[in-house]
């Protein structure tokens, strides 16, 4: 197995389990799905305007679409009779369709396709090199995912306290003069940046799995935030490495195998949780 693929996957999974935690805790996991699909038109539009795909162009596209999508979803949710599920789904499918239209029409030259956005292929990571001058410093994917780890850590250290506050009890936060909407918006921008930098490496579905599954699994068995974070980091790294090894042995899609392994890990924890619950009920009687 290629060592660069290994590091990209591990870094990404670690960065995602630090980043996704507030999304899971505030019961907005499907926002990750929505944001990841909606970013497509933003990226393509920036490509159309600037004529190339660049790091900062993608960031600006992500920023803009992330804000727009969260505002639209909030707007729709605010109408009486419209449920959050429908609002989230309604917005992201239209954005995604717009992105596909742009790709197949005006922005034909952009090297992105529906396949690549949905599936991603981490096996291509070693091909895309990052060179400074003539010197090859490694695969671009490794550096991007390492950067994402640092970004996630910074976000966690700087905004962790207030985000915890907002995602556990937004009413209480509001009563203490913290506006949850602004913080959620900042968080959505952060997630959008995360997704836009990583989706080409592994595909949006695996990103969603990285952002949600290990955290959900460890939430089942941990009583406080610290343990939750440590356990989810461990789980993310463990299921990613087993997924990588399995994919290597069977010679199948790496992204798919990792996503599946994460799910299996979750269900192992769920059965442990349900057994423990049953046992504790029996003990009570």
């Amino acid at each position: 197995m290629d060592i660069e693929i290994f590091f990209t996957a591990i870094f990404l999974s670690v960065a995602a389990s630090i980043s996704g935690i507030y999304m899971v805790l505030s019961q907005k996991s499907m926002y990750g799905d929505a944001l990841s699909h909606s970013l497509l038109p933003g990226i393509v539009l920036v490509f159309l305007i600037t004529g190339e795909r660049s790091f900062f162009g993608s960031l600006i596209g992500a920023l803009f679409t992330g804000v727009l999508v969260s505002v639209l979803i909030r707007r729709l949710e605010g109408i009486k009779g419209i449920y959050s599920d429908a609002a989230i789904g309604g917005v992201f499918v239209v954005f995604f369709a717009l992105g596909i239209l742009l790709i197949s029409g005006p922005a034909e030259g952009v090297d992105l396709d529906q396949d690549c956005v949905l599936f991603g292929e981490i096996a291509f990571v070693p091909i895309d090199r990052w060179t400074i001058g003539d010197y090859d410093v490694g695969a671009r994917g490794v550096w991007i995912s390492l950067f994402l780890v640092l970004l996630a850590l910074t976000f966690h250290l700087v905004m962790g306290r207030v985000m915890k506050f907002v995602s556990f009890n937004s009413e209480f936060a509001r009563s203490r003069g913290v506006n949850p909407e602004i913080w959620n918006m900042i968080y959505h921008i952060f997630i959008s940046i995360f997704i836009v930098l990583s989706f080409e490496l592994v595909g949006v579905i695996l990103i969603l799995s990285f952002l949600v599954t290990p955290i959900a699994a460890s939430w089942l068995v941990s009583g406080n935030m610290k343990r939750l974070i440590f356990l989810s980091l461990t789980l993310a790294a463990a299921s990613t490495s087993t997924g990588l090894v399995a994919a290597d042995a069977l010679d199948v899609s790496i992204s798919g195998t990792i996503a599946f392994m994460q799910g299996v890990t979750f269900f192992v924890f769920l059965s442990y949780y349900s057994l423990a619950k049953k046992r504790s009920i029996r003990r009570l009687h």
């Binding site: 996991s29 969603l208 799995s209 599954t213 996503a259 994460q262 799910g263």
Partner: peptide, 11 residues
Amino acid sequence: MAVVLTMFYGL
């Protein structure tokens, strides 16, 4: 939903 979706799609 997120967990099940990603797991099945991965498979």
